[in-house]
Design a protein around this nucleic acid. Structure first.
Length: 277
DNA sequence: AGCTCAACCTGGCTGC
DNA sequence: TGCAGCCAGGTTGAGC
């Protein structure tokens, strides 16, 4: 599931159930995720109250008195809130109990990860994996024309394609493979163009497109929030309406031209060769 | 510093 | 039906 909108929707879904509650048990069914789940997690967390859940890029940050637990959903991770007595299903990797409530990480491909950042090591922003992240798309630093100007300025001299540049998360976080194709379509930019050769005006359109596409997706995800929170079975999939993603061979919804698919940086890119110049 | 590419892991789909 | 091959929403780290 997870690009930024899905992570944001997850945060919105679990926060009311988790914030202010105290961890009573941590069970690691299979800690061999992207990185090993810290074995000390149980010792650290039991008895601690979750003060707040935040999001940074695609990471969820669970704040406790003595530090922050960082959780990434990877490609296939889903967090679900269930009753503790409900039996965990296949691919439940880790679960956290808050009294009768269980927060379960379901992750078939095990590309997710869980980390601990102790308070004594300073603010969580110091955490190595957060340091390389670009700015948040909905913060002041990417608002209005500022976002596009940032994309423009940082791209000068860059030879990689604008698709890979935007997807890298170096400048602005949260744009995964689906919303990257969608944003470039909305901004009418051909994904094959070199990042360093794109005008400031185009990047300003791209900045707007990124915010618009992500916002719409969050709103679409929001509609499935109830399903998500109350789900005790498989996660509810919400349909994301895409203009180009996964539409190879189909007509462009704006001009009718056949949507193309190419590979860039080992990932699929979809675009309309007429609309995107 | 920037670019490319393999790697992590499992399931689902396509085609023979 | 079986099986090989390819694809999948992310990200790091090695090597040039």
């Amino acid at each position: 599931m997870p690009e930024l909108p899905e992570v944001e929707v997850t945060k919105l879904g679990i926060s009311p159930q988790i914030e202010g509650k105290t961890i009573t048990e941590v069970i690691i069914h299979d800690g061999r995720l992207r990185w090993p789940v810290p074995e000390k997690l149980s010792r650290i967390l039991i008895g601690q109250k979750c003060l707040m859940i935040r999001r940074r890029g695609k990471y969820l940050l669970f704040h406790f008195d003595s530090g922050v637990m960082l959780l990434h959903l990877g490609m296939t991770g889903v967090l679900r809130i269930q009753k503790k007595h409900e039996a965990p299903k296949k691919y439940n990797r880790v679960e956290f109990h808050f009294g009768e409530i269980a927060l379960r990480l379901h992750d078939p491909r095990k590309f997710g990860s869980i980390h601990w950042h102790a308070k004594k090591d300073g603010p969580v922003e110091n955490f190595a994996l957060l340091q390389r992240l670009g700015v948040e798309p909905f913060e002041q630093e990417f608002s209005g024309d500022i976002g596009g100007e940032l994309l423009y300025k940082k791209s000068r001299g860059r030879k990689i394609s604008v698709k890979q540049y935007l997807l890298s998360g170096q400048i602005v976080v949260g744009v995964g493979n689906i919303y990257c194709s969608e944003s470039l379509f909305e901004a009418k930019i051909n994904p094959k163009r070199a990042a360093g050769k794109i005008s400031k005006q185009s990047y300003i359109r791209l900045g707007e497109a990124v915010r618009m596409v992500l916002k719409k997706a969050i709103q679409a995800g929001g509609s499935s929030l109830k399903d998500f929170v109350h789900s005790d079975g498989e996660p509810g999939h919400f349909m994301v309406m895409t203009k180009v993603y996964d539409r190879v061979g189909l007509p462009c919804k704006d001009c009718g031209t056949t949507i193309q698919q190419i590979t860039q940086g080992q990932r699929s890119t979809y675009y309309c060769p007429s609309c995107q110049k």
